[in-house]
């Protein structure tokens, strides 16, 4: 028996919004420790890694590990039927071929359930090596989303250069070029608005804007985002999900021939 309960459906809605642009379907691996998802997008350029810890749920029970393959468009249709403040419970029997979502309104006067067929996705898992990154940038997630959205208008590729002075995002295309420089802030009062950079050595890497735009669909999950970079390895864009876990996106760089 698997059962996981969250008092606010809003969180699960946001999680789904954060992955469904990159993935059509995904396997949710459920175990005693929580729910994990790891999947590449169709082009195998990016990888999504989601962890929802069991202790972050209001109720969590997983008697036997199970993998639930879900069509994310179908899951999205179901979650749209929940109000943000509904309690949501995800349930499945051991070896089941369906999963059930139960939504309960705050006053319990409305209870709905939606059963969805599971899929056999046979997704491969990749080993993600531990990396000591050359640069780790932390900034407001809204600021990152704004920069990516603004620059993507002017080209397909963004060059991210990080030095100890700051981080520069540059794009060039048919119209011309655009640069956004962010300096490290010393704004200790407003930590949430600060930009911080931990740098071992400077890094310059190029990435496809379209994937960064997809990653910023996670913005509602967290006020902060962390970008981790080292030369010639994938960028990691991480959003913490308060008291529940995190979503990490890995993006393969564009490299010279």
């Amino acid at each position: 028996m698997f059962e996981a309960r969250l008092t606010s459906a809003a969180t699960l809605k946001k999680v789904l919004e954060a992955v469904k642009e990159l993935l059509n379907e995904a396997s949710f691996d459920c175990s005693d420790s929580g729910i994990q998802l790891q999947a590449m997008d169709n082009s195998h350029v990016s990888l999504v890694s989601l962890t929802l810890r069991s202790d972050g749920f209001d109720k969590y029970r997983c008697d036997r590990s199970l993998t639930m393959g879900m069509n994310l468009a179908s899951m999205s249709k179901i979650l749209k039927c929940a109000n943000n403040d509904d309690t949501v419970t995800i349930k499945a029997q051991d070896d089941a071929d369906t999963v059930t979502f139960v939504f309960e309104s705050k006053k319990q006067e409305k209870i709905s359930d939606y059963e969805m067929k599971l899929m056999n996705l046979d997704q491969e898992h990749l080993g993600i090596p531990e990396t000591d990154f050359s640069c780790v940038i932390r900034m407001p997630s809204v600021e990152f989303a704004r920069i990516v959205r603004d620059l993507a208008q002017f080209g397909e590729t963004v060059l991210i250069c990080c030095t100890k002075e700051g981080v520069k995002f540059s794009v060039s295309g048919d119209v011309g070029s655009a640069n956004v420089k962010l300096a490290q802030t010393n704004n200790f009062d407003k930590e949430e608005e600060s930009v911080s950079i931990e740098m071992q050595e400077p890094v310059s890497l190029s990435f496809a804007c379209q994937y960064l735009i997809s990653f910023t669909k996670a913005t509602p999950l967290s006020p902060r985002v962390q970008l981790s970079m080292s030369s010639n390895v994938p960028l990691v864009v991480e959003y913490e999900i308060a008291e529940l876990g995190y979503i990490r996106y890995y993006l393969a760089p564009k490299i010279e021939d």
């Binding site: 082009s43 990749l126 080993g127 993600i128 760089p253």
Partner: peptide, 14 residues
């Protein structure tokens, strides 16, 4: 010019 690499060239199958 630059080419898009893939995740599979950095992370290996488990």
């Amino acid at each position: 010019d630059k080419n898009q690499s893939t995740i599979g060239s950095f992370f290996k199958k488990k």
